[in-house]
Amino acid sequence: MNRKLLFPLAAAAGYLALAIFDLSRFFTAVDTAFYGTLEMLAVIPPIFILLGLLDVWVPKEIMVKYMGEGSGITGGIIAFFIGSAAAGPLYGAFPVASVLMKKGAGFFNILIFIGAWSTTKIPMFLFELQALGAAFALTRLAVNIPGIIIIAKLIHTLLSPAAVDEIYRASELR
């Protein structure tokens, strides 16, 4: 059996167990999963279309120049802004990161991109401003941006070049 199907099948088995042992929780779970599916179907298509276009139209040299290992602070800033402009849950960030890696973006910049997607998405930030106030939202942003950089630096330093190569090779195959 396809290894990829293992995870969704295991999760589906959880629903079977819930249906048998706790019907009210089963219905809550189905409800949430239904809305989660709608969210995914709404958010994902434009991201993947843009990904496909990026893959075809942006030459590797351009990506290496602006986001490659030697791109310096420019690459980090670009990665930060692409991640912050994102829409959708964190799981959408990984296929995008994969294409960026395939095109030659540096690993530190990839980590910045993932951090920004998770933490500094502009639409989310506007929501936070409204709900929790400027003092909270701005303080959190001021604390979390250095956090993104620290975590990226840490993982980039800890990981051996061979391990990074392996991740990049996998992205080539996708």
Partner: peptide, 30 residues
């Protein structure tokens, strides 16, 4: 070619997306 690539990457990752969505449903039920 771009659209084929988009579709291919989506099909590639769709099972995992479904897995995450199902898992989140169970988690939020508790």
């Amino acid at each position: 070619k771009a659209l084929q690539m988009a579709w291919k990457s989506f099909v590639n990752i769709a099972p995992s997306f479904v897995g995450v969505i199902l898992l989140v449903g169970i988690m939020l039920a508790f």
